[in-house]
Every structure is written in structure tokens, then in C-alpha cells.
Design a protein around this nucleic acid. Sequence first.
DNA 1: CATGAATGAGACTTCATTCAT
DNA 2: CATGAATGAAGTCTCATTCAT
Lengths: 210, 210, 210, 210
Amino acid sequence: MSDTILKPKASETQREILIVAADVFAAEGFRNTDVQVIADRAGVGKGTVYRHFGNKEQLFLATAQYCMGRLEEHVTEQLEGYPTAEAYLEAHGAADVLRLIARACAQFYQQNPLYLEILIQERVEFREANDPLQVLMRKNTRAGLDKLMETAIKSGDLRKGKVKSASDAFGDLLYGSLVQGSVDGDSQRLVQRVEQSVELLLNGLLASPS
Amino acid sequence: MSDTILKPKASETQREILIVAADVFAAEGFRNTDVQVIADRAGVGKGTVYRHFGNKEQLFLATAQYCMGRLEEHVTEQLEGYPTAEAYLEAHGAADVLRLIARACAQFYQQNPLYLEILIQERVEFREANDPLQVLMRKNTRAGLDKLMETAIKSGDLRKGKVKSASDAFGDLLYGSLVQGSVDGDSQRLVQRVEQSVELLLNGLLASPS
Amino acid sequence: MSDTILKPKASETQREILIVAADVFAAEGFRNTDVQVIADRAGVGKGTVYRHFGNKEQLFLATAQYCMGRLEEHVTEQLEGYPTAEAYLEAHGAADVLRLIARACAQFYQQNPLYLEILIQERVEFREANDPLQVLMRKNTRAGLDKLMETAIKSGDLRKGKVKSASDAFGDLLYGSLVQGSVDGDSQRLVQRVEQSVELLLNGLLASPS
Amino acid sequence: MSDTILKPKASETQREILIVAADVFAAEGFRNTDVQVIADRAGVGKGTVYRHFGNKEQLFLATAQYCMGRLEEHVTEQLEGYPTAEAYLEAHGAADVLRLIARACAQFYQQNPLYLEILIQERVEFREANDPLQVLMRKNTRAGLDKLMETAIKSGDLRKGKVKSASDAFGDLLYGSLVQGSVDGDSQRLVQRVEQSVELLLNGLLASPS
DNA sequence: CATGAATGAGACTTCATTCAT
DNA sequence: CATGAATGAAGTCTCATTCAT
């Protein structure tokens, strides 16, 4: 009300709502979720939720964004002090940086299985939206991944070929492993599954590559 | 009144409803879909839909099953006369059978993009059901895939390693490519994307595999 | 189809339907009852039910009439050979004929508790109908009861007073005992309860009647 | 906006809904009643009705409870200043207290004929519920009635006999008279009918009691 | 700014009734 | 005469959103 500093009051409330919303959306699904439930668990009035996020859809998008942010933080933390994945690449080579990224994602979702639901649901519910979050996120993430692959191909670490195809293959394998891994119920072994899949992608399935 | 054959009327009606339902569910999403719309587009009363399928959920599950069946048919058709993928494997080797399966799936979903939505939605809406269709399908599909991989590893076509991991990697890459490929909007190039990804998985990303 | 005698075929089917209908209506209530269930349990098509009884309401009314008929039969059987209650009255006096009627009704509903539900439901569902069955039945039953009371008063068995009041009191006590007795759950002791109540009505509650 | 007292708003709205609901349920019957109609006549949205009462069944039960409460109030008012029926008994004797109770009930339902329908319907629709309102009410009402009868028997006012039987007879006669009295259409003479029936029960039908 | 009572459009589902076979 | 698939009106209940306090 009269904070001289920077009234983190509002954003504090927003954070709490988002944390609760992530749980509820993940557990119930977007359509199934009753905004009243989120308000109740967050200890605020339903009107407050609407005041902060406008409507249910924007609340979900904000929730997804929050989850993505948490994932990014976690991946960055795993870089062992290197400021960027690019820097890590130069130091440890292409294979290790891809291993690290994949493992970091798997760890995050193994620890926060519900957040994976958010990722999947956004795909279903907002596929037609002009700027579904994932598409936006992908532009960033993909740009980074493409640059990484490009560097790794130029350095000779990776086989020559289209950068885009390599990024696609890595990204799709990772996405597929995370989603299917969580479906198969062994969300406890998500890291292991992803690590093994990435290893196979790196080295190839064939005994005698062409 | 003057049908040559004797009324396969009931199952005929069911098929028509399922075909319409696949379109509507895919276009609108499960929760967004109004059963009335399916009934209207199928040219039947709403009660007829409920008479045949019990409720909206079972209608969706039947729709998903129908889509899966169509996919299986398509894949089988691609086997160039071989009765099973196993037979194809013996004749053409592991690499080609995996290429064929992946390409067949990609072709199918490139031709029927909406059916991919059904696949994805089932994952979201019925993740908690005891026997979501996908889980059941996976048991079959996976059993076949595992057997294929096992044979291919024993024959020396594929690198030695866990059968399960190879199946996971191939399945996850395929699933991820299909889903992400459709998201990225180039559902027109789904086949191309999947082919390139599978090629990379077969031969490995690394220039010098370990 | 070519019975020389009197094709009880149709009425046979009707009887079966009515017997089933009585059970279902009693168990589920009129509004809750699905005609399909009656058709199924009776082993006939739903169309057959409608062919015989026109609509659900008429089916219920026919069912109620059937139950009333069964009750009348039972009461008549209890008259120990006397053709009418009137005849029984002359032979045994007013007290015994009232006891007999009450006991016979109680016996019937104790043996067929479900039929009591039919009685009660008709009151609720068709209270506004021009000729609810009960009203019609009452005209007959009441006419008989009134005549009985009139005779008994003239003979000096019963206290002088309005015939109508005596009939009302007896009928209301009987109706109330049956309904409340079934509610209280001791439908096993319906006979006992009715007998005791009738006894009290006959002799009065007061130690010193005015 | 300028109410003198501070919004008993919620319970006020509830009361209004209940009053309307009593009318509609009584006039249409439970199954026949459309909640929308109640909402419209009460001048509120349908959601408001559901917000306050949960579902149609609970709304009906609340309505029945409200009616019972009104009846109790009315009976109490008739006690001419005596705090309880027990007190009235001591002052005026058994016969008069029973007359008073019966007359009070008859008066109430003669003035509010629709409420009688509620009483009857609850019996039909909720006969299987664990705690249909009537059963609960009966426990209270019956406990009071039993105590009254017990006192009256001990005092010598009433004939010796089972307390339970006396209560049953009085209660059943009253219930039967009210229900049948309303059926017979002379709801205008309900009081008269009940008074005469009770008089007969008190003094007995027989000219020469045993 | 927060609240939560009120709202009403919207969706699922049931079932009495019909009618072509 | 019997059948049961088809129909669609009708009714219950939910929940996103608003707004007066």
C-alpha cells in the first residue's frame, strides 16, 4: 500500500497463483479445471485471479510460460558454470552438450512430472492460437539448438548434413521420450530412458553405418 | 428396400458416425466437441449417437480405435506383399524395415492430418484411464517392435544393446517427429522430416561413433 | 392365430407385462421407470408394450388396476365362503367384518409390499387426472363401506353417528397404517400394526368414553 | 443500498427460493418440476438455485424441511400459551391435547394445501434415502407423541395398552385423514373431517366397547 | 484492489414415442 | 402383430465471467 521500494506484492500473489495453477491444470487438464479451485487453493478470491490474468486461457498460458521458465532455469543451472550451452560446447564437445541438455530436461520433468502435462496440454488446447506459447518458445529454443548444431557440424564433431534435420531429430527424440516416458509410467526412470535414447541417436542404431 | 445385400445397416451407421466424429474431435478437441454437431453432420439424431456409443467418452475411444485401425491397414499395405514386418525384415534387413514403418506412418498422417490430433488428444484426455487405447495399442505395437529389434540385433544388423532401449528410441523419435512435425505446420513435409530423422537415428549424429 | 376357442394370447401377454410393470413401477417409481426395462424383463419388444397399452401413463393405470384387482380377490377369499362383506356382517357382526377387511388388506400388502408403492404413487402422479383410478375405486369401495357402516349402525353394533364419518375414520386409519407401516420398515408386521390400530378405533382410546 | 439492517441477503434469497419451490414442487410434483421454473418465478438465475442448494434433490429436501418447520410453528402457536404439548396435557387432559394437535395440523394443511403435497411426495421420491426427512421428523415427533401417550395412560386418561400402538393409531389416522381428505377434494373441510375422525378414535366406533 | 454471489449459456444424457421392416 | 432402431424434446448441472460491495 505504501511500499517505498518495489511492491512485489502483486507479483508475489501472481506467483502463488501460477504455482497452484500449474498443479491444478496438470492434474485436471485445461478444460476440466475449475478456476474456483485454483482460487481456493491459492487462498484468494476468484475475482483476484481474473484481475491478474484476464481469463482462463491467459491464465493457462501464463502458467505454461512459468513452467517453461522453470525448465530454462534448471537447464542453465546444469551448465556447470558455463554461461551458455555454446560455451559448454566449446569446452566439452557436441556429444556432451547434447547429453547435458537432454539429461537436464529429463531431470526437471522427473522431478516435476506435472509440468510435463502442461507442456502436452498446451499443444492440444492452443494448437490454433496465433502464438501458442510453444511455437514462440520453439523459435528461441530452436534458434539456440540450430546454432549449437551448426557449430558442432562445422567443428567436425557431428556428421555433415542439414542443420535443421539434426535439430529436428534431437528435439523430436527428446520430446517423444519425455512424453512417452511419462505415459509408460516409469516417470521415475525418465532420465535413464532419455539418456539411453540420446546415446543411440548419437552413435546410431546400425552396426555398420553407411 | 432393394439392397442387394442384407442390411449391415447398424455397422454402416456406426462407421459414418465414426468418420464424422474423427473430423470433429480432431478439429475441435474432445472437450470442445458438441456431440450434437457430430450427430448433425452425420445426418442422424443425437440419440442415435448415444444409442451406438453410450457416451461421449466411449464415442471418442471408438473413434480413436477406428483411426488406429486405419493406420494399421495403411502400414500393412506398404509391406509390398510381405505378410508381416518380420517377413519384410528377413528379406530387406533392419534398416529398411524401420524406414518403411516410419515412412508408412508419416504418409498416413500426412494424408490424414486430423487423425494425428486424435492420437495426441487421447493422450491428454484419457491419461488416467486404466486402459487408454494407446496403452493397449502400445502393448501390441511394442511387442511387435521389440521382436523386430531383437531379431535385427541377433542378426548383426543392429548394434548390440538393450532391445527395449532401441525400441524406445525408435518409437519416441517417431512419435516426437509426427507430433512436432504437425505442430511446425509443415504437415505437408511430414514424410520428409520423419525419413531424415530416422536416417540420423540409424547412422548416428556423431562423425566418429564410439 | 386360429384358435377356435378364445385366443387368450393377447391378454396372456398383457398379464405378463402388467406383472412385470408392477414390480418395476413399484421399485423405481413412475417417473423413474424406463419402459424399455419393463419390455426387456417381460421378454417383449418395446413396441409391443405400446401396442397393448398406448402410453406409459395408461400402462401405469392398467398396472394399478391390476393391483387393485388382486387386492379385491384377496379380500374376497378371506370372507370364509360368504359371498359379500354384507353377508359376513350379518353373520358375525360389525366388529369382526371390519377386523376382517383390515386384516385382509394388511395381509395382502405384507405379502406384496411393492403393490403398496403402486397405490401410493398413483396418488402422487395422477392426483389431477379426471378419473384417477383411486377415485373411481373409492366410489365403489366407499359405497360398499358406507353401506356396511349404515347397516351396522342401524343394527346397533356401532355407535350412532354419521355414516360418512365412520367410513372416513376407518378408511383413513387403514390407509394411514398401511402407508406408515411400510415406511417404518416393519412391513413384516403390517398385519399386527393394522390389527392393533383397528382394535383401538373400535374400542376407543379413552378410558371413559363420553 | 439503504437497508436498515445488514444483509441477511443470502438467507433471504434462500427463503424466497424455498417459498417458490414449495409452490412449484407441490403443483408439479418433484419429477415434473423444472428447476428453471423455480428460478424464474423466484426472480433469480438457475445457477443461484444450484449455488444455494447443490442439486434438485437437496432443494426438495430443504423445501420439505421448510414446510415441516412451518407446520411445527403453527402447532406451537395453537398451544394457547403452553410451552409444550406436555404442559397442555397436564392442564387439559389427554383428549384435548390430541384434539388440539390434530386440529392444528388440519388447519395448517387446510390453509396451505400445497404443503400437503410436499409431505406426500417426499414419501414417494425418497423412500429409500437413508434419512428421508420424514423418518427423521418422525423420530422427533414420534418421541414426543409416545411420551404424551405414556403420560396419558399412566394418568388414567387413556385406556391401558401399548404406548406404541396408541401412537401408531393416532398418527396413522391423522396422516390418513389428511391425505385422503385432500384427495377427496374437500380440502376446505379438512379440519372438520380430522376432528370427527379423532373423536371416533377417542371414543371408539363400537356401541359397546369390550 | 479484493471478493464471491449471481448469472445463464451451453453440453451431456435420458427416454417416451414412432414407424419401417 | 411384433420389433427395436431412430429420434429429439426436455431437463440437470457446470463454470467462465461479471460486478456491486
